[in-house]
Write a protein that binds this DNA or RNA. Structure first.
Length: 139
DNA sequence: AGCCATGCACCG
DNA sequence: CGGTGCATGGCT
């Protein structure tokens, strides 16, 4: 593996907009997706690993936690992966529901995060601004 | 399988 | 004491 990138479209819950103060997003149990993340020791309860992600500028760094909630095997009901601690990042990036987070990794193991705006709407206080200077000329 | 929701701990 | 995140249960 030299270059790998995965992405996820953000849900309301991922952003903590549903009232549920959720700390992070859910990671689908897809081998391709999980292959991107480090392997966690599933013999332990709720194993986790801190991961560092860089922005495109190669400088700004964010630390997220990749956690496997597996209490199903320890008298619970959970069996899912989560990437927590992202709210600050998402907030800083002004991520909205429907936006896409893209995670990538390069050869030396360095990881990158990036937000891809699904609907590039120019927002300002809820008002949609039209770009350019429109002019209506009545002849 | 994936998203929604909440009780409690922690911290300013 | 309000916001944030963990851990966990619930709902579709």
């Amino acid at each position: 593996m030299k270059f790998y990138a995965i992405s996820k479209t953000l849900s309301a819950n991922d952003l903590g907009e549903t009232g549920g103060h959720q700390a992070g997003i859910l990671v689908p149990k897809d081998s391709k997706i999980l292959g991107y993340f480090p392997t966690l020791d599933s013999s332990v309860k709720n194993p986790r690993q801190e991961l560092s992600f860089y922005e495109e500028d190669d400088v700004t760094k964010w630390n997220f936690f990749f956690i496997y909630y597996n209490n199903k095997f320890f008298n619970g009901t959970r069996n899912e992966y989560r990437l927590t601690w992202m709210t600050k990042y998402l907030r800083a990036k002004n991520a909205k529901v429907g936006d896409i987070v893209e995670f990538s990794i390069i050869e030396d193991g360095r990881r990158y995060v990036k937000i891809i705006r699904e609907n590039p709407v120019d927002l300002e206080d809820g008002v949609i601004k039209l770009s350019g200077t429109w002019k209506v000329i009545n002849l």
